[in-house]
């Protein structure tokens, strides 16, 4: 029972989500530190799925076994059907480690599975490793983003969720995983939850390819503060982003949220206005080429994670930048 199991979540268009490949990448590194460990992937899908396409996408990740659990109840997400099936298959496989993407679906089913299997779960990890006792060592930010905690689990399977885009992607030489098709039978069981309607969501604020991002935190104080930032962004040809707290406070819309909860960005230039630098936020911007931070608190942690730091009032800088840019173009 040294196996690692990955949950292969599908998007609403029935494609494997990016987090699946990212978890498979990380799992390869974990597997190398375990003896006699197999890497397995579990995908729940309806009958008419494009298995060939999925198999070809999964060729380069050293997977030992792919289990397709098939039932038309998996056409759309239902936590009851998902959990019943996953729980049974996990018990059959008896893996040492079970990893799930930290998506809405992942964050719903992971605690359901862990509670029904009476095992521990560490949510939203940013690093996973194998410790000297050959167990999972899961690291996550904790308490207001101040500390990192490395969490161990006394029970098996050792479960963890990881948000999308936290881990990078690597590929290996093509291999031929053993493929199992399993027609899953719910017998008499019927879920009491039903989906009445699904409305596809257009995500029009994809920041993953933005070159310059101006981002605001609680230091921008209110919605008007973000309007000022948006004006500056328009003049500069930049896109805007926001921290989780600013979104929660209603200053900015959740589709521009940057950080571990929200989008991970890799801009050429990231300018943070009034952002103190909680770990959750820093995790989402670590791949930016250059980071400039503007904050009036010289002790703000963001100053330990930037290339250029300006200790000044965010609004004073926004105003001045606007003035300079307008002067220049006239």
């Amino acid at each position: 029972m040294n196996d690692i199991l990955i949950f292969g979540e599908l998007s609403i268009s029935n494609k494997l989500r990016p987090c699946v490949f990212q978890l498979l990448t990380k799992a390869n590194h974990l597997k190398n530190k375990l003896n006699d460990s197999k890497l397995k992937l579990l995908v729940l899908c309806p009958n008419n799925s494009n298995f060939d396409e999925m198999n070809s996408e999964l060729k380069c990740y050293n997977i030992d076994e792919i289990i397709f659990a098939i039932n038309d109840n998996f056409k759309e997400f239902n936590s009851d059907y998902y959990c019943l099936c996953i729980k049974e298959i996990v018990q059959e496989i008896n893996p040492k480690i079970f990893l799930i993407g930290g998506t809405n679906i992942g964050r719903t089913i992971a605690p359901m599975i862990s509670n029904s299997l009476h095992t521990g779960l560490t949510a939203d990890c940013i690093e996973l490793d194998i410790n000297d006792e050959k167990n999972l060592s899961a690291t996550r930010p904790t308490f207001g983003g101040e500390l990192m905690a490395t969490i161990w689990s006394k029970t098996y399977p050792q479960m963890a969720t990881v948000r999308e885009n936290v881990f990078k992607l690597e590929k290996w030489e093509e291999n031929d995983p053993h493929i199992i098709f399993k027609d899953y039978d719910f017998q008499e069981y019927k879920s009491k939850i039903s989906l009445i309607k699904l409305i596809k969501r257009e995500i029009n604020s994809d920041l993953s390819n933005a070159r310059i991002i101006l981002s605001g935190g609680m230091g921008l104080k209110n919605k008007e503060g973000f309007t000022k930032l948006e004006n500056l962004a328009n003049i500069m040809g930049a896109q805007i982003g926001a921290t989780r707290l600013a979104v929660e406070a209603g200053f900015a819309s959740s589709n521009i949220q940057i950080g571990q909860t929200g989008q991970s960005v890799a801009a050429d230039l990231y300018i943070a206005f009034g952002i103190s630098g909680a770990i959750q936020h820093l995790c989402g911007i670590k791949n930016c080429k250059k980071i400039i931070a503007v904050n009036n608190d010289p002790n703000a942690p963001i100053f330990n994670h930037c290339d250029i730091g300006i200790v000044d009032d965010a609004f004073a800088i926004i105003k001045e930048l606007e003035k300079l840019l307008l002067l220049k173009t006239v």
Partner: peptide
């Protein structure tokens, strides 16, 4: 079932000029 093995400060980013 889970416990904090170790808690530490998020290290500063040494790849940045600061």
């Amino acid at each position: 079932p889970t416990y904090v093995y170790n808690a530490y400060r998020y290290k500063e980013d040494n790849n940045r000029e600061k």
